[in-house]
C-alpha cells in the first residue's frame, strides 16, 4: 500500500472525509432528483397540454408557467444560491449545510427538467394524440398512456442529462457549505494545494456520471421499440 500513500499522500489520511463527502453528494443528488423530477415532470406535462390548440388549452396557466420557467432558467446558479437564501432559511431553518443546499438545487433544476420534459413530449406525433382522442380517451389517459408511455425512452435520456447537471450543480452548492465532493475538492484540495484530493474527488464524480450515463442508455434502449 506504499505506492498509494506516495501518489495520494493526503487522500489516504482522510478516507472518512471522502466517504462522508460522497454520501453528501449522493444525498443532494437523490433528493434533488426526486423532488425536481416530480415537479419538473408535472410542469413539463402542463406546458405541453395547456399550450394553444392542445388537449387542455389554457392561456393563463401556459403563459404563466412558460414565463416562470424562462425566468428561473436564465438566473445563473451561483446568483440563485445567494438570492434564494432567505427562502432556504424559511424552509429548512438554516441557509448553510447540505440540506440547505438542496433548496436552491431543486429550484434551479425544476425549470431545466421541465423544459427537457416539454421538448420530449412535444416530439410525440400529434396524429397519435388525435387517434387517442378519436377513440374517446380522457385527457388523463392520454397523458399517462400516450404522452408518457410513448416517450419513456426519451424521458430517460432527458433525465440522464438532468441528473448529470445536478451532480455539476452540487459541486457549486458546496460554496455555501453544502458539503459533498465538490466542496471537498475546493476547501481541502484547492485551498490547501492538496492536488491528489482534487483528483480523487474528480474521479469519484466522473465514475458517478459514467455510471448514470451507462445505466440510462441501457435502460432507454431496453424500453424503446420505435
Amino acid at each position: 500500500m506504499d505506492w498509494l500513500a506516495r501518489i495520494f499522500p493526503n487522500v489516504v489520511t482522510m478516507p472518512e472525509d471522502f466517504l462522508i463527502a460522497t454520501g453528501q453528494t449522493l444525498y443532494m443528488v437523490l433528493v434533488t432528483a426526486i423532488i425536481s423530477g416530480i415537479l419538473g415532470l408535472i410542469i413539463g406535462i402542463t406546458l405541453v397540454v395547456t399550450a394553444p390548440g392542445k388537449l387542455l388549452e389554457n392561456h393563463l396557466i401556459y403563459n404563466l408557467l412558460d414565463k416562470l420557467v424562462n425566468l428561473f432558467r436564465s438566473i445563473p446558479f451561483v446568483i440563485l444560491l445567494a438570492i434564494i437564501s432567505p427562502l432556504t432559511r424559511l424552509i429548512v431553518g438554516t441557509s448553510i449545510g447540505t440540506t440547505a443546499a438542496i433548496v436552491p438545487l431543486i429550484i434551479g433544476v425544476i425549470p431545466f427538467y421541465a423544459r427537457q420534459v416539454q421538448n420530449v413530449l412535444l416530439d410525440v406525433d400529434g396524429g397519435i394524440i388525435e387517434a387517442a382522442q378519436s377513440v374517446g380517451a380522457s385527457p388523463m389517459s392520454i397523458i399517462l398512456h400516450v404522452y408518457l408511455h410513448e416517450s419513456t425512452a426519451e424521458l430517460i435520456r432527458a433525465s440522464v442529462v438532468t441528473l448529470i447537471s445536478v451532480i455539476n450543480l452540487t459541486a457549486m452548492a458546496g460554496a455555501i457549505g453544502g458539503g459533498g465532493l465538490g466542496n471537498l475538492a475546493i476547501i481541502i484540495g484547492y485551498d490547501r494545494f492538496e492536488n491528489d484530493v482534487i483528483f480523487v474527488a474528480l474521479l469519484i464524480i466522473l465514475a458517478m456520471v459514467f455510471l448514470i450515463q451507462l445505466i440510462g442508455d441501457k435502460l432507454a434502449k431496453a424500453v424503446d421499440h420505435s
Binding site: 397519435i128 388525435e130 387517434a131 377513440v135 374517446g136 380517451a137 398512456h145 410513448e150 419513456t152 421499440h225
Partner: peptide, 29 residues
C-alpha cells in the same frame, strides 16, 4: 366518440405498444 371510429393517412399507431396493445387501447375505459 367511441361510436365513431377514425383512421388516418399516417396510421397514427403508438410505436411503443404492441399491435395487440394498440388495439386494446380504446377498451381501457
Amino acid at each position: 366518440r367511441k361510436k365513431i371510429g377514425m383512421i388516418f393517412q399516417h396510421f397514427n399507431l403508438m410505436n411503443q405498444r404492441t399491435i395487440a396493445d394498440n388495439v386494446a387501447f380504446p377498451l381501457k375505459s
